[in-house]
């Protein structure tokens, strides 16, 4: 039982990270119906930027916000420069362009930072040692990750539901044509969506870097888990993405331990199984809206 709880705690912490990246995917999918295959690599590259700041002697609590601002700006730039021209192109073209993003950031990181893993520090003020409650060890960093996720969700909720900007963002995503008629600058709203998504992805990268090592491929696996999370939660539901993320984190942690065949090597198979199962049984995901199609 102790082990089980321990696994759930670790799985939830990992799941929060999957959820964050899934959130980024969902924010973009909701507004533009694009699945951004480059999302994970953009997050990875942001994490490297953050590492560069830290390496240059900057403090954690300065480097991270700075990185997020840069990631936000980069997300906007990517949408404005690369995505917008193909926004109305066939799906294949868009998939290819986002794959181009994947390849580009991946190889750029390898080029600039080499493949040698870099150590990434815990946030200043979060201690390494764990607390012991009964037989269970609680790692402070896991709580920190959870807190960050909750805070971010709350902030996004307030942004989307309580501000005029959020209303514009939602309107542009739901009804681009009508939004344009009422004077919403839809293009900028979509770009902002990409900015927010890039920042959310960057948070996911920065949070997971201390746990796994920072190297150019470290987000690739996380991206697949996040895809599974978003699929499970529903590609058009931000809370679904987070719940899906936590679920996937736990499925992977528990499946890896209790299903002998899976072990630690085949955890990715679990993601594949979840993706295929969900798409077969309930394509819209747990929280997504089922779209009834009329022929």
């Amino acid at each position: 039982m102790t082990e089980f709880i321990q696994l759930v705690l670790a799985g939830t912490a990992n799941g929060c990270i999957y959820g964050l990246l899934a959130l980024a995917l969902v924010l973009i999918y909701r507004s533009t119906h694009i699945i951004n295959f480059g999302q994970g690599e953009m997050a990875m590259f942001s994490t490297y930027i953050c590492w560069s700041f830290l390496n240059a002697g900057m403090g954690y609590w300065l480097a991270v916000p700075l990185t997020l601002i840069l990631a936000f700006a980069a997300g906007i730039a990517v949408q404005r420069v690369l995505i917008r021209p193909v926004q109305n192109a066939p799906e294949l073209t868009i998939v290819i362009v986002t794959l181009g993003l994947y390849l580009f950031f991946n190889s750029l990181a390898l080029w600039i930072y080499s493949g040698v893993p870099k150590p990434f520090p815990l946030p200043t003020g979060i201690r390494q040692a764990s607390w012991q409650v009964g037989d269970i060890f609680i790692i402070p960093y896991h709580l920190f990750i959870f807190a960050v996720l909750i805070t971010l969700m709350a902030a996004l909720y307030l942004l989307f539901q309580r501000t005029k900007l959020g209303l514009g963002l939602r309107a542009a995503a739901a009804q681009p044509a009508s939004s344009r008629l009422v004077g919403i600058n839809v293009n900028w709203m979509l770009a902002l969506g990409w900015g927010i998504a890039a920042a959310a992805g960057a948070i996911a990268g920065i949070l997971s870097a201390p746990v796994v090592q920072l190297e150019p491929n470290f987000m690739a696996t996380i991206l697949i888990f996040s895809f599974a999370s978003a699929t499970l939660g529903g590609f058009d539901s931000p809370p679904g993405a987070v719940v899906g993320g936590i679920a996937i984190g736990n499925i992977v942690a528990l499946g890896g331990r209790y299903i002998e065949f899976i072990g630690t090597q085949l955890d990715i198979v679990l993601a594949l199984v979840v993706i295929v199962t969900v798409l077969l049984i309930r394509p819209a995901g747990l929280f997504g809206r089922q779209v009834v199609q009329r022929v």
Binding site: L92, Q265, I275, P283
Partner: peptide
């Protein structure tokens, strides 16, 4: 299963297939 997926979803599902092959071989 691919019959149920369209466009980017299909890309995603087939991508996860590609990701799975290396660990399976190992």
């Amino acid at each position: 299963p691919a019959l149920r997926f369209k466009g980017p979803y299909l890309a995603l599902a087939t991508l996860s297939l590609a990701v799975t092959i290396t660990p399976l071989a190992k």
